[in-house]
Design a protein around this nucleic acid. Sequence first.
RNA 1: GCACCCAUAGCUCAAUUGGAUAGAGCAUCUGACUACGGAUCAGAAGGUUGCAGGUUCGACUCCUGCUGGGUGCGCCA
Length: 573
Amino acid sequence: MGIPQQLEARLREAARVVLPDADTAGLLVRPCADKRFGDYQTSGLMPLAKARGLDPRKLAAEVCAKLDVRDLCDEVTAAGQGFINFRLKPAALVPVFEAAARGEHLFFDKATVPRTVVVDYSSPNVAKPMHVGHIRSTIIGDSIARILRLLGHRVITDNHIGDWGTQFGMLLLGWKRYLNPAALESDPIAEMERVYKLVNAECEKDPATLQAARAELVKLQRGDPENRRLWEQMVTLSRREFDRLYARLDVQFDYTLGESFYNPRLEPLVNEFVARGIARESEGAIVVFFDEPADAELRNYPLIIRKSDGAFNYATTDLATLVYRIETWRPDEIIYVTDARQKLHFAQVFAAFRRFMPEARVRLAHVWFGTILGEDGKPFRTRAGDTVKLADLLDEAEERALKIVTEKNPSLPEAQRREIARVVGIGAVKYADLMQNRETDYVFRWDKLLALDGNTAPYLQYAYTRIASIFRKGQVAQIEPRLVFEAPEELALAKHMLNFGLVLENAANEYRPNFICNFLYELAVRFSAFYENCPVLQAPEPLRLSRLTLCHLAAQILKTGLGVLGIRTLEQM
RNA sequence: GCACCCAUAGCUCAAUUGGAUAGAGCAUCUGACUACGGAUCAGAAGGUUGCAGGUUCGACUCCUGCUGGGUGCGCCA
């Protein structure tokens, strides 16, 4: 158990002595925002005092008197309106750090009760290029999956690709009429997109073309062998392109079960909804109405699960997907990572699902993120103007990084510079996206995504390489863990590391990778201060070993923390 | 029309169950390279947290109203 967790446990014990019947679940110990107060604080006694009509200062003082943390803290004080502040005793860090340096832990605990969590993210559409709009879902989803895995949970990632739907009528028609085989060879998705757009434009003017496209769709849906074959080819070609991008992004999926996978399940599902009275016919469609008090906010937003023409829509597919996941993996939780525009849709699907399987205890989370805006602050519309393809963005990022690596380190062989540029460029793009609160709208700016200075991934990677450089230069392979504190920068660095576990937990609970970015950036800032003020290799023993221990652990946290963001570290850059 | 989301420094963003004096980066200005990588560091400046009320010991955070922007709303996904 980590130090903040121990403080919290002791605090709760003391609070129970003073207030035997109190619910201490809300009694949390958190790092002090202002270090002048101490290292950790609790503000949780004030609500308890208020509920009982007690004087919060007095309560804090009483709990403080019962609090036995002499082994961990120099100073524990009741302060302000009813806070308790803790200041750690440097000696208390020694066993924790020595254990960490021996590889026994890295300042976090694995979950005692592992959960099974399905994470649904990325979900590109067949025959369309992945553009910047897919970056957030892919990167945030991947990071959430990595965080949960690090914390010891069983994670199942599933890429719910758009491989079915009405667009295939036009695609099939376009394929048959306008396909350029050579273009398909060199850039399949671009060519599929081209013929799709051609037919789409034609349909708007010419009813006959629209009719023909619909006929192709019907043939596909009825299992026509020719159309089925073409459709399979479209899916295969698209997935090959997606996989190329996922490889560049270092993103993997356990499953890629697209919408088409659920086709056989749609009709039986709708029938059961109707048979059980959850859905009913309305204006020719089959609709779920939310008339129960629990679903009051959806009262005016019914959910169509079968269209009046008999076809199913994405709500049907999402419900079938949900049921399949429950039956197949028995998850404790399912996480959907999509943009904010789908909030109502998921609220509807989740509510319909609760009616269908009220006994399911699964937690359903729609992890949404802000709309992508252009630099003018208006929504970034792919249809209207320039769509920035993800592949082009990554190319540009790597090019910029290569230029800088070549400037800084011209003596490195080109292959190595290219590899560094790849890790730095992709890392910068990911970090720029992950570091901000996912709920705020996302302004797409080349400069922001490709920035290599300031609070960016390269800054963190650079801190890591400086540490690697120390070990290289000192020819230090293994260290005997020691810990002595001389300079204030050493203590500040060490204390920060203790919070890695809290941050991982918070990031997992709130689905907010940016908490980890903040933590790592602060770690790197503290490391830089340490680096400026505390010579390592030239320090006399035992200071040298102690500083090497701090360096080693800071590097481990940087590597692991960047790792759960999907960002790699380098020994040299 | 109804619902949801957002508004924080010039710009892009943080702010850990409602907690103490709202923090970073970029840009601007001033400094620091004969210590382990200057993709760095130290410092300055920059704020009526959209407006007006309310709840609270305490509000960027919760409630109400308003302004401005965005998104969605039975047969696209």
